[in-house]
């Protein structure tokens, strides 16, 4: 337990020190991006990993939040109202999507979420006078929470880090809470859970809503970071990328999706500066991970570690 605490303190210190070490704005912004996508992947993982519901429409919450925020701000609302209403509206849509998607399970669930994601994308793409269509639409300026200016890269990084840490703390609590246990139980044995008195539908729907909520928070960070939203950001490919982050890192763990987000974001940005075959690489990673690493990197490494420790122990015993 204490060792974990030490590790946690070290990671926190490292995260806080990032802007001191990385002074190059490009790389610092990359760190902010990782946090945003990390939150998006962790929020999706509530569904995928802990709930066993594979969604291909999670990027729609980026879109719902971002477009709502842009429209509200342009209509003259203040930043706080804009942020609250945008996240609330997007979460509400998530609640509706959950009702629809939970009519089915497995592949049916996946396809309904895909269709819903495409509807959101299609509206963004086609409703020109509202969304700017393919060209996208600009978000006027970042807010100034408590009067603090977050327009510079380091300040924005800290802002994102705080939101990320708060979100991760809540999700961490949830995962080991009674509700989290019920969610995982409903994933493994829905029929038995009902027979134990659990309302499986309600558990899964609440998980969907919570996942949508944190996804919407990530969406808000997205529009703050980019100051811009276009249909490109909420395409099927973005949903698939988010899912890949969760699976690549390890959907059965809390930290896995963050590792996935780090890898995908770095590879995407670094690779795309050299070659423009990012999509091929993304597809290839997808295929390889699913075929050879179905449980992801974090559980895979953990297994190696356990094996290594066991071997070290037996060697010492000899």
């Amino acid at each position: 337990m204490t060792r974990r605490l030490v590790a946690l303190v070290l990671v926190a210190a490292a995260l806080l020190a990032v802007p001191l070490v990385i002074t190059n704005e490009f790389y610092l912004n990359l760190a902010s991006q990782i946090l945003i996508y990390g939150l998006l992947a962790v929020s999706l993982n509530l569904l995928v990993g802990y709930g066993g519901m594979v969604s291909l429409g999670h990027a729609s919450f980026i879109g719902l939040t971002s477009y709502t925020a842009v429209l509200l701000l342009n209509a003259g609302f203040d930043q706080l109202t804009t942020a609250l209403v945008a996240v609330a509206f997007s979460t509400l849509c998530g609640a509706l999507f959950g009702v629809l998607a939970l009519r089915a399970s497995g592949i049916g669930f996946l396809m309904i979420t895909l269709a819903l994601g495409q509807i959101v994308w299609g509206i963004a793409y086609r409703a020109n006078n509202l969304t700017g269509g393919d060209n996208g639409i600009r978000f006027a300026a970042r807010p100034q929470p408590f009067g603090v200016d977050i327009s510079s890269a380091p300040h924005f990084y800290y802002f994102t880090l705080i939101v990320f840490a708060v979100a991760l703390f809540f999700i961490w609590r949830l995962v080991r809470s009674p509700f989290g246990a019920a969610l995982q139980g409903a994933r493994d044995q829905p029929r038995r859970m009902r027979m134990l008195g659990h309302n499986v539908w309600l558990i899964q729907w609440l998980a969907f809503v919570l996942s949508a909520f944190w996804g919407s928070v990530a969406g808000l960070l997205y529009v703050y970071y980019n100051l811009f939203i276009s249909p490109h950001a909420i395409s099927l490919q973005q949903s698939a990328e988010t899912l890949l982050m969760a699976i690549l890192g390890g959907a059965s763990t809390l930290t896995g999706p963050i590792v996935g987000a780090i890898i995908i974001t770095l590879v995407k940005n670094v690779v795309s500066t050299y070659i423009d075959r990012w999509n091929s690489l993304l597809g290839a990673i997808f295929v390889i991970v699913i075929m050879f690493m179905p449980f992801g990197i974090v559980p895979g490494l953990r297994q190696l570690w356990v094996r290594w420790r066991r071997r070290a122990k037996t060697e010492r015993a000899v």
Partner: peptide, 18 residues
């Protein structure tokens, strides 16, 4: 514990440490 949770109000608690 999952069996007991099924009849316990705390099953909706997303915050407490199980």
């Amino acid at each position: 514990v999952l069996a007991l949770l099924g009849l316990d109000r705390s099953r909706w608690n997303p915050w407490a440490y199980l």
